[in-house]
């Protein structure tokens, strides 16, 4: 009896100790995050106002001016890359989840992993070689291609992981009704996994929205409001990069403002993904 009691006490103490440890470590890891958010808000919020959001950049020396073209550019470029990445990524994810083994599966998995670990600037270079150089012009389109490549691995793996969790009995239910395999995949498996796929995509968008390197020599940036996909286009990360590396105080201030807007946008996407995940969750 004594023995058991002592053992219990030891357990309880250990339990308490580990729990305390987890709290401390969690707290520590949150410090940098809060510091970034706090500092960014402090520096950025002063420059964000209505005119900053609705005006185009002004030349050096003139005060005022905003980042409207960069906000719109970011939205356009991110949407375009999503439109490009979703069909390819979801198809590949379905294939991986359904086929599971085989040469092509192996190859696909390998290339997804490689793409995942490719530095973003390299993807920018590739898009430059593929599109900008032959077309002899920087363009929003080439930037979207670079970002789409960056998004692909996220979409592929979230699709695969989601679909793998769908019970096999569901597939059988459909097959047993005489539904052909491809229709089963498209009409039963895919809709059942839609929440995971959408969440993965939203997280993918949040990830690329702030990327600068792939845009440097593709979308390039522009002081004008441009809707032509085959012309240079501005984006928030480019504004931040260009303004922050300039020698002008006024531009530094605007770079903080742009950073603040960007982080709010990314945060919104993250929250949207979380909300979507619970909202579209499917109960099996």
């Amino acid at each position: 009896m004594k023995e058991i009691e002592r053992n219990c006490k030891k357990r309880l103490f250990l339990n308490w100790f580990v729990q305390a440890l987890v709290f401390v470590i969690t707290g520590l890891s949150l410090v940098p995050l809060f510091f970034i958010l706090f500092y960014l808000t402090k520096q950025g919020i002063g420059s964000v106002n209505w005119s900053f959001l609705t005006h185009l950049p002004r030349p050096v020396g003139e005060s005022g001016g905003g980042v409207l073209n960069a906000i719109i550019g970011t939205l356009i470029i991110a949407s375009l890359s999503t439109i490009m990445a979703i069909p390819i990524g979801v198809t590949a994810g379905i294939y991986l989840a359904e086929k599971k083994t085989g040469k092509l599966v192996h190859l696909l998995r390998l290339s997804t992993d490689i793409l995942q670990s490719t530095p973003s600037i390299v993807l920018g270079v590739i898009a430059y070689l593929w599109i900008v150089k032959p077309a002899q012009s920087f363009s929003a389109f080439s930037g979207s291609v670079a970002l789409a490549m960056m998004m692909l691995p996220t979409i592929v793996s979230s699709t695969e992981e989601t679909l793998k969790l769908i019970p096999y009995t569901l597939k059988e239910a459909s097959l047993a009704l005489g539904v052909p395999y491809y229709r089963t995949v498209l009409k039963v498996i895919l809709p059942s996994g839609i929440s995971g796929i959408l969440t993965g995509t939203l997280l993918g968008i949040a990830r690329i929205a702030g990327e600068t390197a792939p845009l440097l020599f593709t979308a390039f940036g522009s002081p004008y409001l441009n809707f032509n996909l085959f012309k240079p286009m501005n984006a928030l990360p480019l504004v931040i990069f260009n303004y922050a590396s300039s020698p002008y105080l006024e531009w530094w201030r605007q770079a903080w403002g742009a950073s603040f807007i960007l982080i709010v946008m990314v945060l919104c996407f993250n929250l949207l993904a979380k909300w979507g995940a619970s909202k579209w969750k499917i109960k099996f």
Partner: peptide, 20 residues
């Protein structure tokens, strides 16, 4: 096989209605 499965129905051990 697809025609066979339309003529012969099956009910499984665990209920498996389509969740969507």
């Amino acid at each position: 096989p697809i025609m066979v499965r339309r003529k012969i129905g099956m009910v499984f051990q665990r209920p498996n209605p389509f969740p969507t």
